[in-house]
Design a binder for these strands. Structure first.
Lengths: 149, 149
DNA sequence: TATTGTTATACTCTATAACTATA
DNA sequence: TATAGTTATAGAGTATAACAATA
């Protein structure tokens, strides 16, 4: 039992550290965590506003506003859908892509540095065990491992 | 190299899951993540607004507003400082304590369930390796392992 | 003068409800 | 009618700057 509490505690601490790191990097690049998440979601997709809302777990009105502010900064564009004239496709601009890639690179370097004290075998062990946890958890639901933090 | 990227990825995924879990539990109890963090910080302290701002990593004006809203819901109280009449001590109310403990209990049960697929030895391994990472990271700075997510 | 906390202001982020334009 | 998206509104959360009270 004690080991379970230790594990919960360690996971909680690590999670704060990791999320805090991402938030700090995003902020250094002048955008918020949710804007970073928006850009990250758009790296390999051009979803409609509704799809985006589902992916981000937000209301469609919140998503619309999020896209407004990102568009105002020229980070994303709204493209008219060809098949449904009510619909819109949200797409990353070149500027948005450059930005999200810079943030991601900085963030990943930070986490790599945090992981660095472990030797390669230990890192592989952590990765394997955490992955098993994640897979088990995702399988217990509808499987939805988000792409970006 | 590949193992390092895997580790970064696994840590990122786990962190989103853990923070998302906390946020969902907080929201089920009717408060935000930052309000939960405020209450958590006050569990074993009665800091001044300035100290609280440092602990939460916020500006003192943001902190003042945060405390305003928590006080309006009777979750915290402002006590006049005895030694410095400019100062205020922020203190958890009984109601606030009950609330943060309920959220924490739910949250810890969630994480325990997520960790459950690993056997006790594997859990102990994860806890030990993550703890080493955390200690190494904290030692590299001014040591500041936050108490609550 | 310097510090503690609050307030005024301006923005982002969020949800609910009402709207429009398509379907 | 139903769906896709926007807008109006209201509130939390955040920072900067200016302020009052106290040190």
């Amino acid at each position: 039992m004690a080991d379970e509490l230790d594990t919960v505690y360690a996971l909680t601490q690590v999670s704060s550290l990791v999320q805090g790191t991402l938030e700090r990097r995003a902020s250094e690049h002048g955008i918020s965590l949710i804007q970073t998440r928006l850009l990250g979601t758009l790296r390999d997709r051009k979803p409609t506003v509704n799809e985006l809302a589902l992916l981000l777990g937000l209301d469609k009105s919140s998503t619309s506003g999020l896209v407004d502010r990102a568009e105002r900064r020229c980070l994303v564009r709204r493209l008219p859908s060809q098949i449904d004239r009510r619909s819109v496709r949200v797409s990353l601009s070149a500027e948005g892509r450059t930005l999200v890639e810079a943030i991601t690179a900085d963030f990943e370097a930070d986490i790599a540095a945090i992981v660095e004290p472990l030797d390669p075998l230990e890192r592989a062990t952590v990765a394997a065990l955490l992955s098993r946890m994640l897979v088990a958890h995702a399988t217990g639901r509808g499987v939805e491992l988000s792409t970006i933090p």
